[in-house]
Amino acid sequence: MVFALLPKKSPNRDGGEVEIEKDLRVEDMEATPSGQDGPVLVSRENRQTVGVGTVENPRMTCRNVDIYYGDNHAIKNVSLDIGRNEVIAMIGPSGCGKSTFLRCLNRMNDTIEGCRITGEITLDGINIYDPKIDVVPLRAQVGMVFQKPNPFPKSIYDNIAYGPKIHGLKGSKSALDEIVETSLKKAGLWNEVKDRLDKPGTGLSGGQQQRLCIARTIAVNPEVILMDEPCSALDPIATAVIEDLIDELREQYTIVIVTHSMQQASRVSQRTAYFHLGDLIEIGPTEVIFTNPRHELTQDYITGRFG
């Protein structure tokens, strides 16, 4: 398709003539002409975080966090707050450090040899890397749901009851029954499993297993739930059910979700953080990140311009 945009010469306002040189073709229709990114977006070379990472009255705070795996500097000087009753999504290409960062929020990286963390991470004002902190109750307070549903090879009932038992939350049998029921209800699974609580958890469908894992996390009264790509092994319907659940859980818990699906991040979160090669590039309200990002790297990633 070729057509002239304007006559070759067109009179300008002062009566003089301006030169309009080119005929336009589809090939010329640059959706984002070069040079236009400059004044509006922060350049790709700049790795300073764009946006405000702090919130009022945060649940968790991270200050100048660096994470190393041996010589590999996986997270570089990241400062970020995690607010109360919010869903914050971490997005970024593979290897950007988002899962690494998520895992250090409940010290899941402790067991990895050669992993070293500097900086400060607090939960309700307490430094979680303080040597006096016991990681077992910490991981109950900051629970985690993994990519692949990983129920225990036990009954549905025992999957939920196991946590409260080992964390000493157990009272009477009826109290435990109540915890199991409430947790399964909160996870939106109760109606589907109430008649077969003695059946193995591994016999459920993938989506049900993932909700069972969420119920297991809820059973120990967490404050924060970390989710590492919780829907990547699920079909769209099971995914929608989990996303709906995340929205409901937000009323009681703080949720940090790592996801490869930008649509998922945009659907479930209120704030979004974009990571790139270990740097926190941009953090802001989700609707701003997805409609009007301020950093070129964020824009490249969310609009599908990689590499």
């Binding site: 945009l5 090939e27 959706a31 002409p33 599908g304 590499g307």
Partner: peptide, 21 residues
Amino acid sequence: AKEHTVKAFTQELKLLKAKVF
């Protein structure tokens, strides 16, 4: 500005702008 990884997407956006023009 970088091109989309999916080149057909870039072409569609260009076509849209061309149609508006």
